[in-house]
Design a protein around this nucleic acid. Structure first.
Length: 437
RNA sequence: UCCUGAGUAGCUCAAUGGUAGAGCAUCCGGCUGUUAACCGGAGGGUUGUAGGUUCGAAUCCUACCUCAGGAGCCA
């Protein structure tokens, strides 16, 4: 197949190339037409000068509608007014399909309309930039773990019972009379694979049936979860900061163009280096209470609860780097968290709050390794012991200190892109009241 | 589930009790370097739905529906 991609166009100056794509937009005057052509790898401006081409080509160019699919052959040359920008002197045009009136016009649109047309919205430049960065982040995630001794261990999506018992799960029919639940975390399974392989990670879709309706929520999102045998809480925090820094560096290295397209203030991302500030929950609570005293926080936070979104925003805005808040009250965390040996009312856990108010991107910690403690926790959380028999086996047959975390890909993407809403960070977002397209 | 706001042309919006309008998109015409191109013309409406108040309702009232933002919950 003879085809040149627009991203490679600078290597073909002076050559006649074939580009296959769609019409992004067209501007024309009486004898000059400038079709903007996109092919998924970029956008290039075509130039058609009426006296220089045959009548059919001129007429064809002028019948083109937005998003018509086409194949053009033309000579690549530098833009006369913009050095370093290339355009295509169109010599041949094949209209593959003349598109009907395209709904997304080069004007502003509302959220509802764009979401209804998500399948078409993906073609626009901003979405292209965001989803390219998402792909870059995912590649960095895999590279980081694959090159640091981790083994990919895919965990199941159908699970037999509530994994953590904390969140609402999607229930699906699983043959005959059995119900299955869509996974909310691969972590418990990861603890088993960590005992088998040492350092593991899983990466896949995660489902939460929370009736949550905010800019940070999806009902289906992608989470990467490493788990490390013999890691303590400090090891988990070091891993988290190295991991995030690696991803940020990679995006800055490979996706400058897309970040510029999104008008992302990259100076904020360039500040992301290890080590990240570590803040004990107790001290975070003090900061919130001082903030309340100064009138900077709306509610006076009481020790013992989990932070709300405004609390997280306030805390993260106090730091230029992501802040790692650790040792929350055990009562507000999952049953499997290891209690702090010095303060058993605290859990050996950590949340990483992204800067600029993007909130929690990572949650994790050290897992409880003592069988009796876990049994007690399962009962106190009202969970069915029989569902966890296999999990408890891990504490009977060579129990070991270990820990890990989970990172939400979409929240990370929203943060790095500097965009308002998480719905644009996944091709087809699933949300409380949106299942289509 | 709760709180707040919004539903008018394909899209984004205007019209605040008295003849429903503009820009973009579409169609027609003009323009030799355009950059959300520009200029001229045309078509396009059961004002979310149902009921009510009024001489008269897009506008006021009631209920419902849809969407958005936020809370709780969460990554």
């Amino acid at each position: 197949m003879e085809q040149t991609y627009i991203r490679d166009i600078a290597n073909h100056v002076g050559e006649v190339v074939t580009i296959k794509g769609w019409l992004y937009n067209i501007r024309s005057s009486g004898k000059l037409a400038f079709p903007q052509i996109r092919d998924g790898s970029g956008i290039i401006q075509g130039v058609v000068f009426k006296p220089g081409v045959d009548e059919k080509l001129w007429n064809d160019v002028n019948t083109l509608t937005q998003e018509s699919s086409l194949i053009v052959k033309g000579e690549v040359r530098e833009h006369p007014k913009q050095p370093g920008v290339f355009e295509l002197d169109v010599k041949e045009l094949e209209i593959v399909h003349l598109a009907e009136a395209y709904p997304i016009t080069p004007k502003e649109h509302g959220v509802e309309f764009l979401m209804d047309n998500r399948h078409l919205w993906l073609r626009s430049q901003k979405q292209h930039a965001i989803l390219s960065i998402r792909a870059e982040i995912i590649r960095a995630v895999r590279d980081f773990f694959d090159s640091n001794g981790f083994l990919l261990m895919d965990t199941p999506i159908f699970t037999p019972a509530a994994c953590e018992g904390t969140t609402n799960l999607f229930e699906v029919n699983y043959f005959d009379d059995t119900s299955a639940y869509l996974t909310q975390s691969g972590q418990l399974y990861n603890e088993a694979t960590a005992a088998a392989f040492g350092k593991v990670y899983c990466f896949g879709p995660t489902f939460r049936a929370e009736k949550s309706k905010t800019r940070r929520h999806l009902t289906e999102f992608w989470m990467v979860e490493p788990e490390v045998a013999y890691a303590d809480l400090d090891d988990v925090m070091s891993l988290a900061e190295n991991f995030i820094t690696f991803i940020v560096h990679r995006v800055l290295e490979n996706r400058r163009k897309e970040l510029a397209e999104l008008e992302r203030d990259v100076t904020k991302l360039e500040l992301i280096e290890t080590p990240f500030p570590r803040l004990q929950y107790d001290d975070a609570v003090k900061m919130l209470q001082e903030g309340f005293a100064k009138g900077e926080v709306e509610n006076n936070f009481v020790w013992g609860g989990d932070f709300g979104a405004p609390d997280e925003t306030y805390l993260s805005n106090k730091f230029e780097r992501p802040v790692m808040v650790h040792r929350y009250p055990a009562a507000v965390k999952a049953f499997y968290m290891k209690p702090d040996p010095e303060r058993p009312d605290l859990a050996m856990c950590v949340d990483v709050l992204a800067p600029e108010g993007y909130g929690e991107v990572i949650g994790g910690g050290q897992r409880a390794e003592d069988l009796q403690y876990l049994l007690k926790q399962i009962h106190e959380h009202g969970l069915p012991e029989e569902a966890f028999d296999w999990y408890l086996d891990l504490r009977k047959y060579g129990t070991f200190p270990h820990g890990g975390f989970g990172m939400g890909i979409e929240r990370c993407t929203a943060w790095l892109c500097g965009i308002e809403h998480i719905r644009e960070t996944i091709p087809f977002p699933r949300m409380l009241y949106r299942l289509k397209p």
